[in-house]
Write a protein that binds this DNA or RNA. Structure first.
Lengths: 296, 296
DNA sequence: ATTTTTAATGTATAATTAGCATCAAACGAG
DNA sequence: CTCGTTTGATGCTAATTATACATTAAAAAT
């Protein structure tokens, strides 16, 4: 039994006329006749009472089989549609990772919101993870895409797409003498206590702070790491020290705190989308395409 | 999309190995490879990640499509089974007619009970109808089989199968002088009032009573026809007259009534099964076969 | 580096399907 | 009652498709 036989059967049952059924199927009457004969042979029973002249009618077996044939065909159509939609990336699921600092700026939520609007059938799962962990998870296939901070090197299987350049700013208390300067020079920051966020593993901020120290000719004094940006700013507001934060945390304005750029040093953090080079999942490819489209 | 492609897809998904799947499908690896390629082309997406060596895996699309494919295949198997069972006459429905006198003897219920035991999936509809009406209905296709009383002629499209010979007996009151005779001669019955059942149309009993009259040399005196055998016997028990009934109504023993055969005259009624000569419905053919099997 | 495993593919062949022409039966018109 | 028309079946041929075998290419294990 094959689907084309059932399609033919259904059409004849609808038309009750071999030649008309053939026409609507885009084939010839002889083909229809043979196809039905094959189906009847497969089932071991006649499906139509053929009478030359007057109308073809369903046999009792044919009448019992017709609803079954319709069920099979409708099921097949649904299934085919599912397969095609899956192939176009319209259904499925995707695991997306992001670094905490990217979420704060709204970048991640913008991309994800736009993607969901174009692919409402896809189940989107978001996980906040540090950059190295995301790279690991993507390589292992447990994560499909990750909004991470730029690295100098990536594993070969990872494709890294720079999305935007975020400036890193110094957060300080407005009563501090340096608050009067529009921009801070690296040398201004010698002897200052720094607060950096620490999300379970070594974060990128530590490395950038070292760069700052090298540029300013000092070794940064780093206080006990805190668990998120809000805590950094709270500590800065309390006068405990200076913070190093991405510009996007300006969204979290705490009274008494100010954000100042560092002059003479390109202190930035690139937001990068990481996916597998060999990615084949239509869902992930569609997500990637959507991000690339919104980038430019 | 065709079913054999889905069968192939499911098998590979189960085996995760093209060559093994091919073996279990009774074909070759190259065929399986090409069949899956065709399905992938039809859906516009890859279904398997092939890696020479190590194991084949489902793609995300393949994983979404697999349950659909299984649904289609299971539905197709169910449908095919329905078609085949319909072809074997195991499911469907059948309209069976019977004359009232045949029901009383239990003949009809015996045949029908046995048939239902062998074909529990068939919906059996029973209708009590007079012989001429049954013949009409069978010819018109509104009835599939009929337990009728024998006729001398049938329409060409009707096939009549004699099932059994029922004796017709005289029912009389035990106080009647003739009750002392073991058998009645036709001549004994001159001048007697006869009661015959009448089921809406002229029944066969009238004709047999005429025969009796001719044999006995008298014109039968027939009282107002009554509606069933019980009424006949009740009237006989009340002494209103004699009845002419099939032997099987002996099952309805009324106090004061006796049944006596008529000597010297073959007063019988043949029970006949009527079907269409050109019958094609497997259900009806199975019923017919069952009746013929139980006849001998 | 070599061998082994395994899916893809070239190629020839077998099988199936499709198309055309024709046939045979049924029905209606005259 | 005959003739013409309709309509599904069927014989034949061409085209398409499926199958089988042999080989290839790539990946993994030794």
């Amino acid at each position: 039994m094959e689907l084309h036989q059932l399609r033919c059967f259904e059409m004849i049952a609808d038309e009750l006329h071999f030649a008309r059924a053939a026409e609507r199927l885009g084939t010839t009457q002889s083909g229809v006749s043979r196809t039905i004969s094959a189906l009847e042979a497969a089932l071991g029973t006649r499906l139509f009472n053929r009478s030359k002249r007057s109308s073809v009618t369903l046999t009792s077996s044919g009448a019992l089989f017709l609803p079954e044939a319709r069920l099979i065909l409708r099921q097949a159509e649904r299934g085919e549609a599912v397969g095609k939609r899956a192939g176009r990336g319209e259904i499925g699921c995707i695991e997306i990772g992001y670094v905490a600092s990217a979420a704060l700026g709204g970048t991640v939520s913008d991309y994800v919101r736009r993607y969901r609007a174009t692919a409402p059938g896809v189940d989107v799962h978001l996980r906040e993870l540090e950059t190295p962990r995301q790279i690991e998870e993507i390589a292992a296939g447990r994560l499909d895409a990750g909004f991470i901070r730029a690295r100098t090197h990536y594993p070969v299987e990872i494709r890294a797409i720079p999305l935007q350049r975020d400036a890193l700013l110094i957060a300080l208390h407005e009563d501090h003498p340096l608050a009067r300067q529009e921009a801070l020079r690296p040398t201004d920051l010698a002897g200052v206590n720094f607060l950096i966020p620490y999300f379970g593993e070594a974060a990128g901020f530590l490395a950038r702070l070292q760069e700052l120290g090298i540029a300013g000719g000092f070794t940064p004094r780093i206080m006990e790491p805190v668990r998120d940006f809000l805590t950094v700013l709270t500590a800065v507001a309390a006068g405990l020290g200076f913070g190093l934060v991405p510009a996007s945390v300006g969204n979290l304005r705490l009274p008494g705190t100010l954000l100042r750029p560092v002059a003479g040093l390109d202190l930035t953090a690139d937001l990068v989308l990481a996916v597998r080079h060999a990615e084949a999942s239509p869902v992930v490819l569609q997500f990637l395409a959507q991000v690339l489209r919104n980038m430019r």
